[in-house]
Simulated scan of single mutants.
Amino acid sequence: MAALFLVDSDEQSRQAVRCVIEESPYKYLAVHEADTAHRAGLLLKQMQPTIMILDLSLPDMNGVSLGKMAKGLYPQLPIIVLSHLKMFDLVQECINAGFSSYLLKPVSKHELMAAFDRLLLSELCRETRHFMGEGAAPATFETDLGNPIDTVIRYIQLNFQQTITLQEVSSLVYLSPSHFSRLFKAETGITFVEYLTQYRIEKSKSLLKMTSLPIDVIANNTGFSSAGYFSTTFKRMVGQTPSEYRSQFQVFLHGQQHSAHRA
């Protein structure tokens, strides 16, 4: 699940960040907190956060050292530094350590959201591609003219994130669009467009159940032209909006987590 790791010894500062996140498009992030480097180190070994916000003035360790440790564990982890310290040498040290952003306290909502937009959307897209297991590149795809429908189904499975047209797939198997359409429906019982849409919806269900990625990111990475079109199509085919579908699984997951904590 996508998570924000907030490391700051100042409770008021952590609360201010939480409030900004809760009122933003990134409210889906699970927020984990630590007020010491020791506690942060233990949590880092138990989970892989999606993004980290780090104060440099920790009571038991230099924040830069903690950030370097986090980058050692997770090299792709975006780290946003929040600090009262305005020393150029310290900023340069953070840049050299591979940290992603250096913001001064008290941070404004606009500054924090700009950093999240710059860092987190690309990270979420990368997470989506990893989760979906993108298939082979089209150049490696082999066409089996003896089994045109199976060929097109494999092509859909490898390329459903991209725009796919009837003209494209019928040309792939050297058939006219009209003949291919009749053949596809005869073998599958549904039209090519219906099959493609159903396949994309099933992929989106996996992302809704297993991740906290935003709806627009899921729509984009399952081949839908817009979040609005995705939501309308999902509601028509599933009987629920994507958010409603996701919420029933979140309730279940939270129940499982609470049971595990009690145990």
Rank of each mutant, 00 (worst) to 15 (best):
Met132Gly: 03
Asp8Leu: 01
Pro59Lys: 08
Asp10Ile: 09
Ala97Ser: 10
His130Asp: 13
Gln240Pro: 03
Lys86Gly: 07
Gln198Phe: 07
Met210Asn: 15
Cys94Leu: 09
Leu82Arg: 05
Glu23Asn: 11
Lys27Met: 11
Val152Glu: 06
Ser226Asn: 05
Gly146Met: 03
Met132Cys: 07
Thr143Met: 06
Gln157Asp: 12
Asp144Glu: 06
Met237Val: 05
Thr197Tyr: 04
Leu6Tyr: 05
Ile190Leu: 06
Asp117Gln: 14
Ser24Asn: 13
Ser176Asn: 12
Thr143Ala: 13
Gly146Cys: 01
Phe5Cys: 05
Leu6Ser: 02
Asn220Tyr: 11
Gln162Arg: 06
Glu187Val: 03
Lys235Asn: 00
Thr50Met: 01
Ser108Tyr: 11
Pro148Asn: 10
Ala219Leu: 00
Ser204Thr: 08
Leu253His: 15
Asp35Gln: 14
Tyr174Ile: 07
Pro242Val: 05
Glu194Cys: 04
Ile51His: 01
Ile218Gln: 01
Phe192Leu: 02
Ser206Trp: 03
Lys45Thr: 13
Ala16Asn: 14
Ser108Asp: 11
Ser170Cys: 14
Leu208Gly: 08
Leu145Met: 05
Val217Thr: 11
Lys71Val: 10
Pro75Glu: 13
Ser108Arg: 13
Arg39Ala: 14
Met47Ser: 14
Phe88Thr: 13
Phe184Thr: 11
Arg126Tyr: 09
Arg262Ala: 12
Leu158Lys: 05
Ala114Asp: 01
Ser231Ala: 15
Ile79Cys: 06
Ser181Leu: 01
Glu142Val: 09
Ala219Arg: 03
Lys185Ser: 15
Ala186Gln: 15
Ser83Leu: 10
Arg129Trp: 14
Tyr28Asp: 14
Pro214Thr: 13
Ser101Lys: 13
Glu33Ser: 05
Ser9Phe: 07
Gln167Thr: 15
Ser100Trp: 06
His130Lys: 15
Ser65Phe: 08
Arg126His: 15
Glu202Ile: 10
Leu103Met: 12
Ser57Cys: 12
Met113Trp: 10
Tyr199Phe: 15
Tyr28Gly: 10
Phe116Asp: 01
Lys86Tyr: 10
Ser13Tyr: 04
